[in-house]
Write a protein that binds this DNA or RNA. Structure first.
Length: 550
DNA sequence: CCCAGCACGC
DNA sequence: GACGTACGTGCTGGGT
């Protein structure tokens, strides 16, 4: 079996199977490789020389799974060449599910029979078709230079995990419980009755019927009065119960989503939290994280920060965080070629202040905090294809003012306005939009003739090239950083832990942290030459909150 | 089991 | 007249 130049592999449970195209399949249980007998060692030697040989190409559907299994027994797969799951994703990134059976059914309109040799032949069959399709759609570069090299990096990140201070979490759980029951009884007292605060239905009855509060409150999709935080805030002057409810919600969220589940999720063998990073989970090219989601760990509120503090470095290590400053807006400036926005970034200005200065026609030093806040809302709105109503809601200004503000913005930043229009036009004409590296998103609804679906598709057309290019850049940076780690450092001295869309988190030997941090920063800032500079904030500390700039 | 409503991140 | 700011994951409640 050592002579194979290319083979497909598939793994279910611990049973591993591989086979060349048109050749018969071999399979065995991975647990047979972990003993110490001479037969086992021999088999293991043959196995690892095949898996670790970079010139033997591996084909598979979801290669991250077998790579993780191999890493667990000390075998580091090399020569990862074609993952049909990722190919399927690049060709059509809006599917919910990329299971082999579903992808196969979708492609060939045939059910995939579940036996193992059928899976292997299905992988080969898909590979042939996807290879041609990716060539035809110019997706080969994204596939080969961005997605495939990332697979084993994600496998390592998942396996390595991140350290958590359990004792701290247990304490935090207790204090949060106490606080919650206090809030609970106060809320019942104000309401004059016990009810389920977690039920929006019961809550709205208490607020709008029993306590008879009123105001300009948004309706939910189902037609009921909304109890979302933004709506309740409008009522906070009317009754002291509102603030208590908002606080209760915050604590309940933190407790049930983060504080209580996390201790259970710690792997007793590694004493660390291991997420799953999904490479085919978003339509824009971003990664997603689940079980648990480590990309939405709280950061804003005090209790959120308290929770985040429980993410800690191993002994003799430091956490090093690097995040891009205003990456999406910089990408928007680059793609649109907008003169004023590009110039502002080139001069190193605070972009929101500059935006305010342009719109209100004042000097930057005359921009007030509220002017800056509105300009910031506008800049964010731009990235999301926001309209007048959306901006009105985000900024809190009147409708006329919102309209005028947006008009001014589009006049001043006319490159941005042209970009937005050109993406709408392209999506209508070509049926898709793309990132600067050619990652695509199809938007068939833009031609549907149904106004709501068309506007929604237009917003997606405006956002995807920016968000998707950001995802591409982060992935490229991760790949280049991993190369640095493997060439310049001892195994285990520098470990990539997480990617949170515009941020990378590492765990680095404390005596190396500063130097390695600057090297990584340098890679990130120079990962790709745009018309604007990219800047990265570098911070370092023993937990994920108390970090000092380097 | 699924959906609605809500809330956390970027 | 209301609506409609991109991309995710995950919780609880409430109905099937």
């Amino acid at each position: 079996m050592g002579g194979l130049k290319e083979f497909a592999l598939d793994i279910q449970d611990d049973y591993f199977i591989f086979g060349g195209e048109n050749k018969e399949c071999f399979g065995f249980d991975l647990n047979n490789l972990t003993g110490t007998g001479s037969e086992v060692l021999k088999l293991r030697q043959t196995f690892s020389s095949l898996i670790e040989n970079p010139s033997t190409a591996k084909v598979g559907h979801d290669l991250k799974l077998p790579i993780k299994k191999f890493l667990k027994i000390g075998v580091s797969a090399k020569g990862l060449f074609f993952d049909t799951k990722i190919a399927a994703y690049l060709l059509k990134p809006d599917r919910k599910d990329y299971d082999l059976g579903l992808v196969y059914l979708n492609q060939f309109n045939e059910d995939l029979r579940p036996d193992r040799s059928n899976r292997i032949s299905a992988i080969w069959r898909l590979k042939k078709v996807f290879e041609e399709k990716m060539k035809a759609e110019s997706l080969v570069e994204v596939f080969e230079t961005i997605e495939m090299p990332l697979v084993s990096i994600l496998a390592e990140m998942e396996l390595f995990g991140i350290r958590i201070d359990v004792k701290m979490l247990k304490k935090l759980s207790q204090s949060t419980n106490k606080e919650l029951s206090k809030l609970e009884s106060k809320i019942y007292r104000y309401a004059g009755t016990k009810f389920n605060i977690n039920s929006p239905q019961q809550l709205k009855e208490i607020i709008f019927e029993k306590l008879k509060m009123s105001g300009k409150i948004r309706k939910t999709a189902g037609g009921a009065l909304s109890t979302a935080a933004g709506e309740l805030e409008k009522l906070s002057e009317q009754h002291p119960i509102i603030d208590l409810i908002l606080k209760y919600r915050e604590l309940q969220k933190l407790k049930t989503t983060y504080i209580d589940p996390f201790p259970e999720l710690i792997d007793p063998k590694t004493e660390r939290i291991h997420t799953t990073l999904n490479q085919t989970g978003t339509v824009t090219g971003r990664l997603s994280s689940q079980d648990p989601n480590l990309q939405n760990i709280p950061v804003k509120t005090e209790l959120g920060q308290e929770f985040r503090r429980s993410f800690i470095a191993s002994p003799k290590y430091k956490l090093v965080s690097l995040d891009y400053s205003q990456l999406e807006l910089r990408i928007a400036a680059h793609i649109s070629g907008d003169k004023k926005m590009t110039a502002a970034f080139k001069r190193g200005e605070d972009i929101h202040t500059r935006t305010a200065a342009e719109i209100f026609e004042v000097d930057p030093d005359k921009v007030t905090p509220s002017m800056r806040r509105e300009a910031k809302a506008m800049n964010f709105g731009l990235l999301y294809g926001m309209g007048i109503t959306g901006f009105q809601r985000a900024s809190g200004v009147s409708k006329d003012r919102a309209r005028e503000f947006i008009d001014r913005y589009m006049t001043e930043f006319d490159g941005v306005a042209q970009y937005m229009e050109s993406m709408r036009t392209k999506a209508r004409k070509d049926g898709y939009v793309e990132t600067i590296f050619g990652r695509k998103r199809y938007l068939p609804e833009i031609r549907s003739g149904i106004p709501q679906l068309m506007s929604q598709a237009e917003r997606m057309a405006i956002n995807m090239p920016v968000q998707g290019t950001e995802a591409d850049l982060l992935k490229l940076a991760m790949i280049k950083i991993e190369k640095l780690i493997n060439s310049d450092y001892q195994p285990g001295d520098v470990k990539m832990l997480l990617q949170i869309h515009d941020e990378l988190l590492f765990e680095i030997k404390d005596n190396l942290a500063e130097k390695a941090g600057f090297k990584i920063k340098n890679i990130m800032e120079n990962i790709y030459k745009l018309n604007v500079p990219l800047t990265v904030d570098l911070k370092c500390g023993y937990n994920w909150v108390d970090m000092a700039p380097l």
